[in-house]
């Protein structure tokens, strides 16, 4: 079992969600985060003072998937992120165990 994590600009999130739905992905965890990068810094001005802000509002997607779907889904997410001008990251990690608390199911059954 794997975890796919992507940090994307908010406008791309909807497209990713829709594409994943086509692949039968039913659920995921989503959070509003800030991503720090040199490329996306901007200036804000309050009462004449300039404030450099290098944190870009972003959406973080966490998605648990069976091993065999990992490369397909990562590629789908990456493709859609590539249509957006800004950069972003998608990464994957190994998951040892998932429990669906309500039913007590373990592993793949819990997805």
């Amino acid at each position: 079992m794997k975890l796919i994590t992507a940090v994307v600009r908010p406008p791309v999130f909807e497209a990713i969600k829709e594409a994943l739905a086509l692949f039968g992905v039913r659920g995921m965890t989503v959070g509003q985060v800030h991503r720090i990068s040199r490329e996306s810094s901007h200036i804000e001005v309050y009462r004449g003072r300039r404030f450099p802000i290098d944190a870009q509002p972003s959406i973080r997607i966490d998605l648990l998937v069976p091993d065999e779907e990992l490369s397909d889904l990562t590629r789908v997410i990456g493709k859609i992120m590539a249509t957006d001008e800004s950069d972003g990251n998608v990464w994957t990690s190994q998951i040892d165990l998932v429990v669906r608390v309500r039913t007590g199911e373990y592993g793949l059954d819990a997805l």
Binding site: S41, H42, E44, V45, Y46, F51, I53, D54
Partner: peptide, 17 residues
Amino acid sequence: HEEEAYPDDSLVHAGQS
């Protein structure tokens, strides 16, 4: 406008501000 309604001071690059 280079302003936002609810700026978050924790995200300002403090070294330059």
